[in-house]
């Protein structure tokens, strides 16, 4: 699917480009990370326990279903984080890697 969320108004805002899973995504200034990702795609993350994709639930910071990753491994709650230009979001949990302390 192209996008889960549908914009209904406020479309005259400044365009912003972020990356989602390595691909550029057009969004608008003032979007939450959640809206930016879900107007372009169908999900935010995968359930850790094998029941498929998740796309958030409450949008008010209560359910914690919308945590995504940034490319450098930080965690973001997508519904309550406004996007910023150049953000690099991953909807897949990164593999565990450890720095070399040898």
């Amino acid at each position: 699917m192209s996008g889960r969320f549908v914009r209904l108004a406020e479309s005259a805002r400044q365009a912003v480009t972020i990356r989602v899973d390595g691909k550029p995504v057009q969004a608008l200034l003032g979007d939450s990370v959640m809206v930016a990702v879900l107007t372009a795609g169908g999900h935010l993350r995968e359930s850790e326990f094998g029941d498929g994709h998740r796309a958030g639930f409450c949008l008010m910071g209560a359910c914690q279903d919308c945590w995504v990753w940034t490319a450098d491994g930080e965690r973001l709650r997508a519904c309550s984080t406004p996007l910023t230009e150049g953000m690099d979001i991953s909807t897949r949990q990164p593999e565990t890697t450890w720095p070399d302390h040898a």
Partner: peptide
């Protein structure tokens, strides 16, 4: 209800009120 695309009613309202979006077509 665990499938992507189910939202709480309040969540559906926040999408519209705060972000001018609908949760689906």
């Amino acid at each position: 209800w665990n499938f992507a695309g189910t939202y709480s009613l309040g969540g559906a309202q926040v999408a519209l009120k705060s972000q001018a979006c609908a949760i689906g077509r």
